[in-house]
């Protein structure tokens, strides 16, 4: 059952994500960054697919957290402030705090955007953008690129199965290199052959029609959502102006 967040207009969700991402990028303080990241995670929690989405987060967050802590905390330590010696490595609390802000920015970006993508059917997102003037050809290219990815993955799996069925074993780096041609060859040739048939299929689906296409989905919108979107855009502009003012004005 879709949640109230899931049913928001795609552009409302995108606007909320944008304001969180910009705020996280501009935030100078650890505590504010933590709060903003928490807000991004709240959007995940508000989705009916929160379980599925949350299961993927460790894959995104853990490697980047470890690597950023190492890079910022150990390799670029600011040893003039609060140096800590850990088994020969000199860490700095300020450097760790700095790394933490970067981690929070990254987590905010991932959580905000991933939740929007996972809770918004691609066609609806493109529909919303097309209503705001996105050219049809761009809409199609974006949609096709997004939708074809699973198709290519299936094709790649099928090629691997076909070659394994005739004795291909991949167990070491040399065997992986040797397997490249039998695996990539059918993928490329298949894709080239597919292009012709897929183009034919699009012709047969009236894609070349010049009239305004009918949209099969109705995007739910409301005055409140429109106000929220305007407020979000206003907040983004205000934050940008504030930062420019603080940094560059005498």
């Amino acid at each position: 059952m879709p949640s109230r967040y899931d049913l928001l207009h795609p552009l409302t969700k995108l606007s909320l994500a944008l304001v969180l991402i910009v705020a996280a990028y501009l935030s100078p303080s650890v505590w504010l960054s933590t709060a903003i990241c928490g807000a991004a995670l709240l959007t995940t929690a508000a989705s009916h697919r929160r379980g599925e989405i949350a299961r993927v987060y460790p894959l995104f967050f853990v490697p980047i957290t470890i690597s950023l802590l190492l890079i910022r905390g150990v390799l670029v330590p600011d040893v003039r402030t609060s140096p800590i010696d850990v088994g020969g490595f000199v860490l700095s609390l300020d450097a760790i705090a700095g790394a933490w802000i970067y981690i929070l920015r990254y987590c905010t970006l991932v959580a905000a955007l991933f939740t929007v993508i996972q809770t918004t059917p691609t066609a609806q997102l493109m529909h919303a953008l097309a209503e705001r003037g996105l050219p049809r050809s761009i809409e199609f290219i974006l949609l096709m690129a997004l939708q074809i990815i699973p198709d290519m993955k299936l094709r790649a799996d099928a090629i691997l199965e076909a070659q394994q069925s005739r004795g291909l074993v991949i167990h070491s780096l040399p065997s992986r290199i040797r397997a490249l041609v039998p695996l990539i060859g059918p993928l490329v040739v298949g894709a080239l052959v597919d292009v012709e048939e897929r183009s034919m299929a699009l012709e047969l689906r009236a894609f070349a029609a010049t009239n305004r296409p009918t949209r099969m989905t109705v995007l739910l919108d409301s005055r409140a959502q429109r106000v929220v979107r305007v407020a979000c855009i206003g907040a983004v502009v205000a934050m940008a102006v504030a930062v420019v003012g603080v940094r560059y004005l005498p």
């Binding site: 096709m144 939708q147 074809i148 299929a201 009918t214 099969m216």
Partner: peptide, 30 residues
């Protein structure tokens, strides 16, 4: 055409959408 997998537009996320894709492009009423 004979190969079904290559006749999927890749633009629609449901079967119903795919079946109605050409009609939508032609601008027929919902």
């Amino acid at each position: 055409l004979s190969q079904a997998s290559t006749q999927i537009s890749g633009v629609c996320d449901t079967v119903a959408g795919e079946v109605g894709f050409a009609l939508a492009n032609m601008g027929l009423p919902v």
